[in-house]
Amino acid sequence: MATSTPQAPARQRPRQEQLPGVTFGRVLKSEWIKVTTVPSTVILIVTTIVVMVGIAALLAWQTTFLFDAQSNPDMAAQMQAQGAPDAAEISRDIPGSGLIFGQLLMASLAVVLIASEWGTGMIRSTMVAVPNRTSALLAKQLIMAAVSFLVGAGSALIGYVVAQPILDTAELGFSLDADGALLHIINTGSVLALVSVFAMSVGTLIRNTAGGVVTSIGVLLVLPILVAIFGGGTEWVADAARFLPSSGGEQMVATTIQDGDLNQWQGSLVLGGWALVLLAASLLVTKKRDI
């Protein structure tokens, strides 16, 4: 074996002093560049906002019909007997009424953002540039959660603004300081942020786009339907169902809390708990496994 080892030229050392290495802020910037430079991501975000605002407008319009019907006393009595909601009460739920679709799209996006890195091999570039896997994943989570929050709260706010003139035609308009109205709008964003953390963690664990989307949508949106269909009669199932992530999210955006239901903050603990547990699991597993 040859033993001569020429010294590297000294010129490279000082440059490293001037340009220190990886910081969390820089990783955040890198993840932001990644989100904004894949066209389909941007399209999906815009679509989510359009759909959520559209649903709010549509529901506002529909609520005016309900109001018209209920202003006829005979009709109102009949509808109340059937358990129809009060128009004024449900109108405050309108801004964030597209939340289910928002969850569907943002959860999918969250899975795609991480799982596509495994699918394309990009993850190796990511982890070579940022060998601290936890900070690489946290930066991606943080960017996606922030985007989701802004999409959710922004859509709800726009939905509120768009819905007011429609609701005003039926004396159903309300101001932002009405009971629970502002919290509803903010929490529409919070739910999407927590849902995206949940979904991205699932995507990190499964490392596969299709599997990650099916799993996270299954748990978030399909499981509650199954529980409602098959578990309706059983008391413990109904009791446990309150602690599904979807139930937590529902309570977070509720404008009226029924007796015995969790309130907004308890709801956020449920959904937040799920998100945190999965996040922790995904960080631990990624740290141990090979990339």
Binding site: T37, V38, S125
Partner: peptide, 19 residues
């Protein structure tokens, strides 16, 4: 080891940003 939908320039920019 590159996202197929991103341009070469943006890929390098994202990697460069970390440092």
């Amino acid at each position: 080891a590159v996202h197929t939908k991103r341009s070469a320039y943006n890929h390098l920019r994202a990697m460069a940003a970390t440092h």
